[in-house]
C-alpha cells in the first residue's frame, strides 16, 4: 500500500430507503497513487458516483459508509466529522461535476465563485486573491480572463463553464481531483480539450485524478489504470493497455464488444439482459445471470484475484484459465 495518494480499502456504502437498506457500493478497494489518472468505468447505477461521493463525504440523505476505510496520504478520512471534511474538501480533495450548466450559481459572477474557494481555505489577502483567480483562469485556458472574471455563468458556453468548474476545483492545488463524468454533457471537440487540460494539470500540479465515466474512449485517452465496476463491486482492475488488449472479466469483454468499430462489419453485440435492481442482488457472482460463461460454480462468490501482475479480476473462470 502506498503512503501517498488515495487508498480506498474495502469500502461499503449503505443507503437507507423506504424499501429497506440497499448497498450501492460493496467492498470496493482501489488505489490512486499521487499523480496518476485512474478511471472508474461502469454503466449507470453501478455505484461509481456513490464511491466518489463517499470519498467527498457528500453521500445523499440516508447514505452512510457502513464498512471499510478511505485513506488520503495515510490519514483515514472516512471517520472525519463533517467539519473536518469541509476543511479538506476544496483544498485537498475537490470535485467537478457532470453538468457544468447547473453546477455554477447563476446569480454570482464566476470570478467571485472561484474566489470563494480561496476565501474558505486560505488567508490570502483580498488584493492578491483576484490575482490568484486570474492566474488559475488563464491556467485552465479561459481566454480574456479579466473580462470573464466579471461574467455570469449564463454568459459562458458549456466548455468555458466546465473550465470554470475546473478552475474552482484546482485553485487550492488539491492532491486529488474527482471528476464525475466531466465531459458527458459536452460535445466531442470540447471533450478532447477538457481531457487534454486535465492531463496537463495533472502534470503541472502533480494531482491525482479519479475519472468517473461510462465512456471507454475517454479511458483510452487519458487513464493510467482502470477499474471496472458492476453492481457496486469492482470486477476488473488493471492498467489501461491490459484492459483493451486482454480484457478478462466477461463483463469487460461484453462492454468492449459492444463498442461500434469501423474495421469490422458484423452486427454490434450487446450484453444480454439488464442490470438487476439493487434490492435483488443475485447470489454469488453478480454478473452470472447475464454472463455467457456462467456455470453452477458462479452461484458462489467469485474470488478477486491477480491473474497477471497488476491485473485483478473477480471471476471463477478467469482463475481457471490461469490454472
Amino acid at each position: 500500500m502506498t503512503e501517498n495518494g488515495l487508498v480506498v480499502d474495502n469500502l461499503s456504502v449503505t443507503l437507507k430507503t423506504r424499501d429497506g437498506d440497499l448497498m450501492p457500493v460493496s467492498c470496493v478497494s482501489m488505489e490512486i497513487p499521487q499523480g496518476c489518472i485512474v478511471g472508474l468505468v461502469g454503466e449507470s447505477g453501478c455505484g461509481k458516483s456513490m464511491t466518489a461521493r463517499s470519498v467527498m463525504g457528500l453521500l445523499p440523505y440516508g447514505g452512510s459508509i457502513s464498512g471499510g476505510h478511505i485513506f488520503l496520504d495515510g490519514t483515514d478520512i472516512s471517520a472525519f466529522t463533517p467539519k473536518q471534511m469541509r476543511s479538506i474538501n476544496g483544498s485537498r480533495i475537490s470535485m467537478i461535476f457532470q453538468e457544468p450548466m447547473t453546477s455554477l450559481n447563476p446569480v454570482v459572477r464566476v470570478g467571485k465563485q472561484i474566489e470563494e474557494v480561496l476565501l474558505l481555505h486560505t488567508d490570502i489577502p483580498k488584493e492578491q486573491r483576484k490575482e490568484h483567480v486570474l492566474e488559475i483562469m488563464r491556467e485552465v485556458g479561459i481566454p480574456e480572463a479579466e473580462r470573464r472574471y466579471r461574467a455570469y455563468p449564463f454568459e459562458l458556453s458549456g466548455g468555458l463553464r466546465q473550465r470554470v468548474m475546473i478552475a474552482m476545483a484546482m485553485i487550492c492545488k488539491p492532491e486529488l481531483l474527482i471528476a464525475d463524468e466531466p465531459t458527458t454533457a459536452l460535445d466531442v471537440t470540447i471533450e478532447a480539450q477538457i481531457l487534454k487540460l486535465m492531463e496537463s494539470l495533472r502534470r503541472s500540479f502533480n494531482t491525482s485524478v479519479l475519472l468517473i465515466t461510462h465512456n471507454l474512449g475517454v479511458v483510452a485517452r487519458i487513464c493510467d489504470t482502470v477499474n471496472v465496476m458492476y453492481m457496486g463491486q469492482i470486477v476488473e482492475s488493471c492498467v489501461k493497455t491490459a484492459l483493451f488488449e486482454n480484457p478478462q472479466h466477461p463483463y469487460t469483454q461484453g462492454l468492449l464488444a459492444s463498442l461500434p468499430r469501423l474495421d469490422r462489419s458484423e452486427r454490434l453485440t450487446n450484453i444480454k439482459g439488464t442490470v438487476p435492481p439493487l434490492n435483488a442482488v443475485p447470489e454469488g457472482c453478480r454478473f452470472a445471470d447475464r454472463c455467457p460463461l456462467a456455470t453452477g460454480l458462479c452461484r458462489t462468490d467469485p474470488p478477486y484475484q491477480e491473474t497477471e501482475p497488476g491485473h485483478f479480476v473477480r471471476c471463477h473462470h478467469c482463475s481457471k484459465k490461469e490454472a
Binding site: 457528500l58 474538501n89 476544496g90 470535485m95 453538468e99 447547473t102 453546477s103 474558505l120
Partner: peptide, 13 residues
C-alpha cells in the same frame, strides 16, 4: 440544484 452540491464539495459552510 447542482451548484449547492458543488458549493458543498468546495467545503463551504
Amino acid at each position: 440544484k447542482d451548484f449547492i452540491e458543488a458549493a458543498k464539495s468546495c467545503g463551504t459552510k
